[in-house]
Design a protein around this nucleic acid. Structure first.
Length: 338
DNA sequence: CCGGCCTCACTACTTTACTA
DNA sequence: TAGTAAAGTAGTGAGGCCGG
C-alpha cells in the first residue's frame, strides 16, 4: 500500500534531541572524542578586549573550521550555510537548533586578526600532536619531508619582477601590503624574481612536471613515518632553498618542543643538497660534542640525522623504501626525482 | 539615567579568480 | 568575455562599560 507523508511541518512544538540524530559511527563523533578545547579560551584571553560587545565564542569558530577542514568546505560562506543546515555539524559545534551561526565575515576578520596574532592554529596543532604522542602514535625514529601547494593566484595575473610599480594603488591588496612590509628597499631589489604574481607576490612561479607552471607555495610537512602523524608544518615560497631551510626549522622546532630527534630523515632527491648535507654533518658533529656530556637527552644526542632521498612521489604517510636511497653523508647523485 | 567610548559582528559592496 | 562564486573590507549599528 502506498504511503503518504502526513505533512506535519506546521507543528509548533517538537520533542527533539540533537544528540539522537547523529549516528554513532559519524566521523565527527570520533573527532569530538579526541578534540579538547578546554584551554582555548584561556589561551586567547589576552587577544580579546575586556570591554565592548561580546564576541562569538572562539571554540565555536574553531569547531566550525574543523568541520570545514574535515569535509573539504573551503568557502567560509558555504561553511556557515552547511553548519546552519546540517544537524551533525550543529551537534559538533555545540549549537542548538535555534542558535545563530556566525557571519562569514567574522571568520575572515578573526583569521587575519587575532587568530594570526595569537598563533592560534599552531597552538591547536601542538595540542592535537601532544594527544597523539600521549596515545603512543609517534615513534620519533624516522621523519619524512615533502611539500607543495598551489597559490590562490591566477597564472594570467603575473608580471616580470622588475616591471612592477608596487606604489600603484591598484595593487594595494592585503597580500601585497604584507609582501612589501616583509622587505626593505634593498631586499626588494634583490628579491624580485623573473615572474611575480600581482595578486599574491609572496607565491613563486613554479614549474610543475607534466603540466603548466603556476604560482605556488610550499606547505612543508614533517611526518613521523610510524603512523603518518604530521609533526610540523611550515609554509614557505615554493623554491628549493626555502624548503630545505624549512626542514631544518621543523626538525629543530620539534626537537625543542617535544625533545624528539629522528634517526632518519626521508625526502625526495631535491632535499639532498649540499647545505642540507652540511647541516646534517654539523648536527653529527654537535651530537659527538654532546656525547662528551654537554647535552642530557639520550634520544637527541645518540641520533645524528641520516638523510634518505629519492622518493618519486610526494608522500602522504609513511616512506616508500623501494624508491629510496641513503646518502649517509656522501654527495647526492644527481637524479631527477628518482 | 544618559551620553560617550570602545569593541565586535553584520551588511553591502568591491575585488579577484575561475569557467563556460 | 560574461557570469558566477568566493574573499576581503569600509561603514554601520548593537552591546557593554564607565563617568557625570
Amino acid at each position: 500500500m502506498m504511503g503518504q507523508l502526513p505533512g506535519g511541518q506546521q507543528r509548533l512544538f517538537y520533542s527533539f534531541n540533537l544528540e539522537d540524530h547523529v549516528p554513532a559511527q559519524h566521523l565527527l563523533r570520533s573527532i569530538d572524542q579526541c578534540l579538547d578545547l578546554s584551554d582555548l579560551r584561556a589561551y586567547l584571553t589576552d587577544f580579546y578586549s575586556p570591554i565592548g560587545c561580546p564576541s562569538i565564542d572562539p571554540e565555536l569558530m574553531v569547531r566550525m573550521l574543523v568541520v570545514g577542514y574535515c569535509y573539504g568546505i573551503r568557502s567560509e560562506r558555504r561553511l556557515c550555510e552547511e553548519v546552519h543546515l546540517n544537524l551533525a555539524y550543529r551537534w559538533f559545534c555545540r549549537l542548538g537548533l535555534e542558535d545563530e551561526v556566525p557571519n562569514h565575515s567574522t571568520f575572515s576578520k578573526n583569521r587575519h586578526g587575532r587568530f594570526r596574532d595569537s598563533d592560534l592554529f599552531r597552538w591547536l596543532f601542538n595540542e592535537v600532536l601532544r594527544r597523539c604522542m600521549a596515545a603512543g602514535l609517534v615513534k620519533g625514529e624516522g621523519f619524512a619531508v615533502d611539500a607543495s601547494i598551489k597559490a590562490d593566484a591566477s597564472r594570467q595575473r603575473g608580471a616580470a619582477g622588475g616591471e612592477v610599480d608596487w606604489r600603484d594603488p591598484a595593487l594595494s591588496s592585503r597580500a601585497v601590503r604584507e609582501y612589501l612590509e616583509a622587505l626593505d628597499e634593498e631586499a626588494l631589489a634583490e628579491a624580485l624574481p623573473k615572474k611575480i604574481s600581482l595578486t599574491d607576490p609572496q607565491s613563486r612561479w613554479t614549474a610543475a612536471p607534466g603540466g603548466p607552471a603556476y604560482f605556488a607555495y610550499s606547505t612543508n610537512y614533517l611526518i613521523d613515518t610510524e603512523h603518518g602523524v604530521i609533526m610540523d608544518v611550515e609554509a614557505t615560497p615554493a623554491h628549493r632553498t626555502a624548503e630545505v631551510d624549512s626542514t631544518k626549522t621543523m626538525v629543530e622546532r620539534v626537537e625543542a618542543q617535544f625533545d624528539l630527534t629522528p634517526e632518519r630523515l626521508i625526502g625526495d632527491t631535491a632535499y639532498g643538497t649540499a647545505p642540507m648535507l652540511a647541516w646534517r654533518s654539523e648536527r653529527r658533529a654537535s651530537s659527538r660534542t654532546c656525547r662528551c656530556g654537554t647535552r642530557p637527552s639520550a634520544r637527541t644526542t645518540a641520533s645524528p640525522v641520516t638523510i634518505s632521498t629519492g622518493i618519486r612521489r610526494p608522500m602522504n604517510t609513511a616512506a616508500q623504501p623501494a624508491n629510496r636511497y641513503e646518502v649517509n653523508g656522501a654527495p647526492s647523485p644527481r637524479k631527477d626525482h628518482g
